[in-house]
Nucleic acid binder design. Structure first.
Lengths: 187, 187, 187, 187
DNA sequence: AAGTAAACGAGACGGTACGTCCTGTCTTCTT
DNA sequence: AAGAAGACAGGACGTACCGTCTCGTTTACTT
């Protein structure tokens, strides 16, 4: 179990990593030109060479996914209020609140778009989604929901649908109504 | 109040229109290189000049949306089985069946991707989605569903979520379970 | 995992220097990919860190110039046969023989190319050329050539012209004819 | 005897071609930043898309070679003064005069540098040089020079040597002395 | 029949973004 | 302190694609 060789050479510059991710978030959310955000623009805004981006991420999409994780690092907690309705409401309001932030919304949109064209990004997005989905499924299962997987698909489906297709703002009130409906579903 | 002018000049070539739409569908669904499909590639495959595409459609996305309409022309009927559950099941099964076809799925994916980057396509997709959404809302309202809009968002949400994020096949059984759940939602 | 080469710790490692110069020569002359040779490639082939190159040479061109000096270290002697024709023939044959070697030719080419883009290399190449030129001028002056500078320019001109523009092999016979012509030039 | 099909599609834009070539010359000669001239910079200065350059020239070097041909279009005439010395002087002063212009000199240098790294440019430069060389050889042969090929190599050798290695200005007086020496060469 | 107008296949154009490569510098650990 | 390893900023490269703009040809209606 020898490591083979200790690490030599310069280490990854954590500042550069952060600057890239922050520049991506800033450009996507804040920018006046809310249109396309190029890798060149991100690199320039981060004060970084483009190669530094491609050294650490295999594609633009992968980098954006990391930016998302960084930006929305606050894990949505798996609450335990005692009732399915309460847990669902807590989970979904927190989730929707994240998705309501312009930066997060822009990131999710860009990543989803990228994933339709780039297989690699598609896999990463899939993994990301499955992780969130698993958390919600666990919550639903604990609350004895009749079909936890379906419940998760409905919940995240509404989120992505609003975001990608309807371009509608995500409101907490909607999350609450959704939680209520899902909690009283089935027989 | 001039009549304007009677049409002079060559008329639109219906064959070209069809060739373009078919080429788009073929390249998107069938092709071995199922990756990006460029307008150039579609024009070449259709044996058509690129301008012929842009003469009739304002953007790539608009053309793809038309290809979708052409290819999935079978309108999902608004059934009347007497019960909300029955109507929902009929509607959703038909809808999922359409989305299960590889060509339709590929089109929906490309269009959604395009819509994240191009405002014009976004509006067209939005209009398309709203039309389908309105049909389902009407159905739900007739069946006295407690929150027809939310019901529609959940139904289409699951569809798009599977398509865009999970890249999961759309199965009729899933549509049935979804219909059942939605019909028994709320108090 | 023996490193093969020991570190001296303090003084300049002569082996590293030699490895670098040899790797440069090898890559430039021998390699199948006789195209561009990057500093990274030379460092890797020499088993050397890139910084070790830049610690001792101010630029890529300077290093190549040293490689040239090392590889073609055999100074062309300033012969004294008694006649201008004889001296010229001896000098030029030796010079062309050096330039005929693939490694030397490749080095000269790369250095000349580098010098067109990098001012520093240009100066070094200029100095190198002037030194050789001075030797030939002295020889010509001793032989009472009517215009020693012009003679030198013609001699080295032919060499570089063949090398850089015509990509022609340098043949000794050509050197002999050139020497003969230059010796009988002017009145 | 039909060719199969007449040309269809938009024709090459002559203005774009000229703008590119002129921008290349301007940037190379005039610019304050006399350093590297990138294809992007040329395209931008010409008001042209980069692809328009790569559509018509296989490499940067090929384009520069065309720029040279365009800029120095005035063919050096093959004069006939009756004597070899006179013809040589006319030819070489004209040739040196061209090479003395900053724009031409910069172009020749860039092209030569490019040719050492890019095989394709090398071939084009070779062809260009051979054409000029053939003209001078014909002239020398007509004047009964003892070794026309060698004479041509000496003449162009001096030119390129001054340009690439010595970075010396090309003066007409030098051309005259060179012509005189070459005319009275050999027995 | 001649004239005129529009659509067509073809393909060049300006522009934007991509991902790769290379130079010269900087940083970390090793000897 | 010098070296091997390798990350970094910066900048150029050549490719792909979009939507627009000509060409010359073909088709249809109008006079």
């Amino acid at each position: 179990m020898q490591t083979g060789r200790a690490h030599t050479g310069r280490r990854r510059n954590e500042e550069a990593r952060r600057a890239i991710l922050e520049a991506a978030v800033d450009l996507l959310s804040g920018g006046p030109g809310d249109g396309t955000v190029s890798v060149d623009a991100i690199a320039a805004a981060a004060g970084v060479g483009k190669q530094t981006i491609y050294r650490w991420w295999p594609s633009k999409g992968a980098m954006l996914l990391d930016a998302l994780a960084e930006y929305a690092e606050a894990e949505v907690p798996a609450p335990d209020t005692g009732t399915l309705a309460g847990d669902l409401e807590a989970f979904l309001t927190a989730t929707f609140r994240l998705g309501a932030r312009p930066a997060t919304a822009a990131l999710l949109r860009k990543i989803a778009a990228e994933a339709q064209q780039d297989e690699h990004t598609a896999q990463l997005l899939h993994a990301f989604a499955q992780q969130r989905r698993a958390a919600l499924i666990a919550l639903a299962r604990r609350g004895a929901a009749p079909d936890p997987e379906l419940l998760a698909d409905q919940a995240f489906g509404v989120l992505w649908y609003q975001l990608l297709i309807l371009h509608a703002p995500l409101e907490e009130e909607a999350a609450r109504r959704l939680a209520h409906a899902l909690a009283h579903q089935g027989h």
